[in-house]
Design a protein around this nucleic acid. Sequence first.
DNA 1: CGTATTAGTTCTATTTTGTATATCATTTGA
DNA 2: TCAAATGATATACAAAATAGAACTAATACG
Lengths: 112, 112
Amino acid sequence: MGKGSFLGEFEQVVLLAVAQLGDDGYGVSIRQEIERRTGRDVSIGAVYATLSRLEEKGMAASYEGEAVARRGGRARRHFRMEPAGARALQATRGMIDAMWSGLDLPGSADPV
Amino acid sequence: MGKGSFLGEFEQVVLLAVAQLGDDGYGVSIRQEIERRTGRDVSIGAVYATLSRLEEKGMAASYEGEAVARRGGRARRHFRMEPAGARALQATRGMIDAMWSGLDLPGSADPV
DNA sequence: CGTATTAGTTCTATTTTGTATATCATTTGA
DNA sequence: TCAAATGATATACAAAATAGAACTAATACG
């Protein structure tokens, strides 16, 4: 087995944000969700590039939303997670967990 | 805050193997540990390249071991994890956990 | 109207990570 | 002394991550 089914670090983060947002995920809200949860600030370009890659790989799908009646409220490109995405997230998590298993780092609260 | 303190997917895996192996980590054993724990087969070149990058960033350090009396038993280059590496591992894990928090994927056993 | 403003997306360019394979080095067994 | 074995480096390239500018589509407002 090569890498294949696993996700890169940022792919994981973006796809998790998509999953968390359900129907409310689109470029801007996805970026906000990541910043809110992790405190990490991400560029909007990075988010879209990653979303495209996830879509190419069949882990996410996008569909056009409708324009909202607000200044600048153009149609949004919404994203949802596909089954393959959910599988990849779990595979990635399991793989990392296997590497952590039994390790306790000095100063760490909860050894796995 | 940008990415800065977080680790890439494979960097994480390699550094965790280094941590797990303690004094017994060197190129070949690190590769084996990863394969054993994850079932994923990794090329030796990928392992060394990643170890070098981790060392450059101060997350791991290497030192020369002694040659062992066995055919081909040349001196090994051992690796150990540095404090910055431990911090990066925990930061990365915490960040991913924050993204998972509250999510339960269909067919998943244990929602976080 | 028409143009300034805003929300949202796409494009472009570059750096960093991830990866495989081939080559080099060192040691011992025959 | 050279073949075999273990270990490390070198080389080259592909994929992922990232920033920021440019572009698009919508409305507010004079």
